[in-house]
Design a protein around this nucleic acid. Structure first.
Lengths: 193, 193
DNA sequence: GCTATTGACATACCAATGGTATGCCAATAG
DNA sequence: CTATTGGCATACCATTGGTATGTCAATAGC
């Protein structure tokens, strides 16, 4: 099985190096030449594993989304009730999205490279879905009023993503704390009084 | 003054046609050849008015943002107190951002083409700024608790932008109404009880 | 163990596209 | 009436994403 082993290693190297480059300079600014140089292979290898430049970006995006989703699920699972699962999940979402390179790959390049439809499909399948599930639980046990959860999930997801984007560039002191405080206020407003 | 007149007309034609193309197919998919063909000029004219493909996109983006900002300000100005100014402004924001082509240009291509820093600068100068001002008014007259308004402004701006993006692709019935209802709940939670 | 075949690449090349250098002609200045 | 500048068009270049072909080692079949 030397064959499959080598194959997987080459593929992972390409994804790893591409991710670093995309995160640092953005998709449009990274050429295939830089990717293959960083990975120590040639264009032949790249096009043996991926169909296009967008296709290798797709692989990177899926990896990033999976990592973010894992952090959210891990944080949420440790909580006892549905409300703290939501808040802990949101906190994890915010923290994970602030990690270096994540915004560039997920929010900036993602939609532009893949186009609306495909990006939506991937996005739905990832982090936004967990939010919707958490909200559905809250509706089910009456912690928040009955309402469609999809709009709310998108509002919250957008709020946190945009906040993460802002946090990455701002120099405001304690920006993360203030953002979390503001988000917590918004979330608290959802509860039945 | 035939000179300046002709100049302005050519420039506006280029911006108008580019806007239509970018909105329909997205920045990466639109070539300069299509732009100049649609505008009925040559590449010489395009590069006489703009420095690069990104530069003409910049002109389009500024036009779109200005239109959106105008709608928000118009809606807010008609309101009597600071709270209804916020809600009316948010509603206008949501409606304006849902208009055809706006999301593609403002949210999808914008950051990818211009890069974080420049897009941030333009974004701050446009719609997000009005939000921050409206929130500052609310803090000033005690309608909402004292807090830094910047994080809140970004959370709300992101929430509405993402919601607009979702509204553009979803087939859920009454999605706009439900989204507005959810947003109104979130906003209401900000008020002092 | 020997051969046939497939798979994992490398090499050479192509086409399209963003960008530039140059030239031309009418509008304005003096 | 002439000189000059501004507003473009034409021709061209260089880079880059993508492809067609070739090569050599790993595996399968006997």
């Amino acid at each position: 099985m030397r064959r499959a082993e080598q194959r997987e290693q080459t593929r992972q190297t390409l994804v790893r190096q591409s991710r670093l480059l995309f995160a640092a300079r953005g998709y449009p600014a990274v050429g295939l030449a830089q990717i293959v140089a960083a990975a120590g292979v040639t264009k032949g290898a790249l096009y043996h594993h991926f169909d296009s430049k967008a296709d290798i970006f797709r692989a990177v995006l899926e990896q990033v989304q999976q990592e973010v989703a894992e952090q959210i699920v891990t944080a949420a699972e440790a909580q006892p009730d549905s409300w703290t699962r939501l808040t802990a999940g949101c906190r994890a979402f915010l923290t994970a999205s602030t990690a270096p390179g994540v915004q560039q790959i997920m929010l900036i390049d993602g939609p532009a490279v893949l186009g609306w439809a495909e990006w939506r499909a991937l996005d739905e399948a990832a982090s936004a879905r967990h939010l919707a599930e958490a909200l559905a639980d809250l509706v089910a046990d009456g912690t928040i009023p009955a309402q469609p959860v999809a709009p709310l999930a998108h509002l919250l997801s957008g709020a946190m993503n945009e906040a993460a984007l802002w946090l990455a560039t701002t120099t405001t002191p304690n920006a993360l704390d203030h953002t979390w405080a503001a988000l917590a206020r918004l979330l608290h407003g959802l509860r039945v009084h």
